[in-house]
């Protein structure tokens, strides 16, 4: 006779990641490092926008950049060339996202590189750490990286319907930056509709219209980073 032995698990697949993320966030808070997770689709202008913002902020804050991609070190190099702040390229082995464990390892790797270059001994020397996530609107939204805040970039050419197609990404972000606003006249992008679509999913999200090219909205973006990075100790992810 065939009998069945059943072992009840009842555990979320994300629970171990959530725990790791919470610990990492706590550790960074103790070190007074504010980590911002930056997500978007490929080609939305993450690297350009970040480089511009970093140049506006780097006199006030010590900034580091961790750039995650499947291949190449183009982005980290681009940021380093454009801003002069320390950056590291992380390859995540072809996966579609990074999780808290990978972020932890990336930070360790970054510390090693900084030591070798005699630039710093610890990640704690930074005030702000940017985590440039994989260009993808689906998977990164599922995984808490341990960052204090998450933001995403929606570029005008992608269209105002993206919140409807990738709801989770828009739901988990504290800030949605609508970028490349200088291209607005070439595309059928309705600002009001975009805001409505985002607010319907995520009423608490901040929304900024920015063009890294013309500088429109850059001051507001930097102001958002300043306001959110103040005292990471007091930042709590729970609502």
């Amino acid at each position: 006779m065939s009998t069945v032995k059943v072992i009840e698990v009842h555990e979320s697949v994300f629970s171990s990641n959530d725990k790791t993320a919470a610990l990492l966030r706590e550790k960074l808070s103790e070190q007074k490092v504010f980590m911002l997770n930056v997500m978007s689709s490929p080609g939305s202008g993450k690297t350009t926008l970040l480089s511009k913002a970093i140049n506006m902020l780097k006199d006030e804050y010590k900034i580091g950049v961790m750039d995650v991609d499947i291949e190449s070190s183009l982005d980290a190099q681009k940021v380093a060339d454009a801003t002069g702040v320390p950056s590291i390229q992380i390859h995540n082995g072809g996966l579609c996202h990074i999780d808290a464990e990978m972020t932890e390892k990336a930070i360790e790797e970054f510390e090693k590189v900084l030591k070798d270059d005699a630039k710093s001994n610890s990640i704690a020397d930074f005030d702000i750490l940017f985590l440039e996530n994989i260009g993808n609107l689906v998977c990164p939204a599922e995984f808490d990286t341990g960052a204090h805040r998450s933001m995403m970039i929606l570029s005008v050419p992608e269209g105002d319907d993206k919140p409807l197609k990738y709801p989770l990404m828009f739901s988990v972000c504290d800030l949605v930056v609508i970028s490349k606003t200088d291209t607005m006249k070439f595309f059928d992008f309705n600002e009001k509709r975009a805001i409505e679509n985002i607010k319907r999913l995520n009423p608490k999200a901040d929304i900024l219209f920015v063009s890294a090219k013309t500088g429109e909205g850059m001051n507001e973006f930097c102001e958002w980073i300043r306001a959110n990075s103040t005292n990471p100790r007091n930042i709590c992810k729970c609502e």
Binding site: S2, T3, K5, V6, E8, V9, H10, S12, V13, R200
Partner: peptide
């Protein structure tokens, strides 16, 4: 109102695993 939150529906849980005992 927009002050709403998800009660359930976002689960991705491992409920159980099982082994057949063919003896």
């Amino acid at each position: 109102g927009g002050n709403t939150y998800l009660l359930r529906g976002n689960e991705f849980n491992i409920k159980e695993i099982g082994v057949y005992d063919n003896t």
